[in-house]
Amino acid sequence: MRLHGLDIARFLAFCGMVLVNFRIAAQVAPGTDAISLFTNSLEGRAAALFVMLAGIGVSLGKPDRATMFRRAVFLFVIGLLNLTIFDADILHFYALYFLVALPFLTASSRTLLWAAAGTLAIGLAGLLVLDYEAHWNWDTLTYAEFWTLEGFLRHSFFNGWHPVFPWAAFLFLGMWIGRQDLASRRVQARMVLWGAAAAVLGALPGMLLQDPELAELFGTSAIPPGPFYIIAASGTAMAVTGLMLAIGPALDKAGLGEWLAAPGRQALSLYAAHILLGMGTLEAMGQLDGSLGTSRIFGYSLGFCALSMVLVWVWNIFARNGPLEALMRWSTRFPR
């Protein structure tokens, strides 16, 4: 039986990503009002939830290594195409996470936790030894020399938007979670409680440290992705997933479950749509110059999320899977 809570959590992650990406694309400066604080809190959290849910999906789907590799190739190609119009693409990072996870598909649950910890340790070592700001122009949020071998490797594995080290830890943790009995109320409660505890504990060091450099390294900002960011974001993702699993049956009874779950099953296509249609509309309207206020871009983002639900409902009248989901299924089942 498919767990609607996972699909609902995936749709919430998509909505969080829309709120963050539309504000950044529209160059709306974050403020101190409630809307800005809420959107700020989603930075690095919505994407982390996406990656953790991908890990859960790997464990539940049990793909063989050939299928996993083909998915990685598909996402890598689509991601590189997306990079030509959207610098903060996450799809090619997904491909790299999948490749790193290939040797661990049949590993024990304990090994998956060790893999997550090892990924986290390598990421921390990189922050301590290497220059995180190399190739970055923080004023324009552009990355120089990405299409060189050195720039690509550094961006992909160390200082890009979602580098393999330490972001692949979210995937490994998701794979571990996917091994649990997710339909169990006890497991769901533990996910919420343990996740909330990790989110709080992960935020404490950055709040207590006074030294700016140490506070940045041990803080919970996604840039740079320090160890306590990974802990806090993992906790948030785990708590949200557990909560959605717990309330999923109630939402189904209320008639809302499928409305919220359906777009979650087509998150890949919606991710492309929020760039091509959502940001494309903003660009056509000439609204990528910072002229939109916090409230207007927030309303536009929520409107796009609501529109996504309607578009998926209409699409499902004619097809079961989203266009990119169908293409990925075809590519992974193509005669070997």
Rank of each mutant, 00 (worst) to 15 (best):
A198M: 15
Q180W: 11
S184N: 13
A189K: 11
F172Y: 13
L182G: 11
M191K: 01
A199E: 10
G178E: 07
G178A: 09
A168E: 05
P166Q: 03
S184H: 13
G178I: 08
A197Q: 06
Q180R: 15
W194V: 13
I177L: 15
W176C: 01
R185W: 12
L182W: 11
L171W: 07
V200K: 04
W194P: 00
M175N: 01
I177V: 15
R190E: 10
L182M: 11
F165Y: 13
A183M: 11
V192R: 08
V187S: 06
Q188Y: 01
L193R: 12
A169G: 04
R190M: 12
L171Y: 10
V187F: 00
L193A: 15
V200A: 15
W194T: 11
L201E: 08
V200N: 05
W176K: 00
M191N: 03
D181Q: 15
R186P: 00
D181K: 15
G195K: 09
R179T: 14
M175G: 03
R179H: 12
V192A: 10
A203D: 08
G195M: 10
A203R: 12
R179I: 03
R179S: 12
A189D: 10
A168C: 13
L171D: 06
V192F: 12
A168Y: 02
R190Q: 14
L173W: 03
A203Y: 10
D181C: 03
P166V: 01
A198D: 06
L173C: 09
M175R: 00
P166N: 07
W167Y: 14
A197G: 12
R190A: 10
R179P: 00
V200S: 07
A198Q: 09
A198V: 09
A197D: 07
G174T: 01
R185Y: 09
L204C: 06
A189Q: 13
P166R: 04
L201G: 06
L193I: 14
A199V: 09
F170W: 07
P166W: 02
M175K: 02
A196D: 08
G178N: 05
L193Y: 06
L171C: 09
A196S: 15
Q180M: 13
M191T: 00
W194Q: 13
R190C: 07
L182Q: 10
G174K: 01
F172N: 04
L182D: 11
L173T: 08
L173Y: 00
A169I: 02
L201F: 13
Q180Y: 02
V200Y: 06
A203T: 09
R186W: 03
D181F: 03
A169V: 04
